[in-house]
């Protein structure tokens, strides 16, 4: 019974491994680069997943390509370029800067400048109000003092 159970467990565990294939790499460095690349490349079919997470056939193909080219000695840039040539800038989760993505890259900087501008003007306004109120306070205090002296 135990043996049957054990063999069933082993059977099922290999099945679950077969869902997303594993690759053998000739060096641990390649494995790291494979991991990084497959997380940075976007699946053209299932558009909100990277190719590492996706089960789509095209993602499986792209993972195979990445593995193959890594082992063949291609650089990360070469692999990305290879895929961008075929599937467009779309496959990159970190798109390069061109006329299409200019706003994407510029927006955070513009927003930051706007935020800083708002904060600075607000602080200036507050400071002005504080000086005014403390001036008024000083005047009040003086008046009280004079009033006391006079009486």
């Amino acid at each position: 019974m135990v043996r049957l159970l054990l063999s069933m467990m082993i059977f099922w565990s290999t099945q679950s491994l077969a869902v997303i294939e594993t690759y053998e790499f000739s060096s641990p460095d390649l494995k790291l680069r494979y991991k990084a690349l497959s997380q940075e490349l976007r699946c053209p079919k299932c558009q909100n997943q990277n190719i590492a997470d996706s089960n789509a056939p095209i993602s499986r193909d792209l993972r195979a390509i990445v593995h193959e080219q890594l082992e063949a000695g291609a650089t990360d840039e070469e692999i990305i370029e290879f895929l961008v040539d075929r599937y467009g800038e779309f496959v990159r989760y970190r798109p390069g800067m061109d006329s299409n993505t200019l706003w994407l890259w510029a927006a955070p900087i513009i927003l930051l400048i706007m935020a800083v501008a708002v904060v600075v003007t607000q602080i200036r306004k507050d400071r002005d109000r504080q000086t005014i109120s403390s001036n008024a306070e000083r005047a009040n205090r003086l008046r009280e003092k004079f009033d006391g002296d006079l009486s």
Binding site: P44, I58, Y87
Partner: peptide
């Protein structure tokens, strides 16, 4: 094996 498809940018 879908290699020409890959060159063409076919994804399904």
């Amino acid at each position: 094996d879908g290699l020409f498809g890959l060159d063409l940018g076919v994804y399904g």
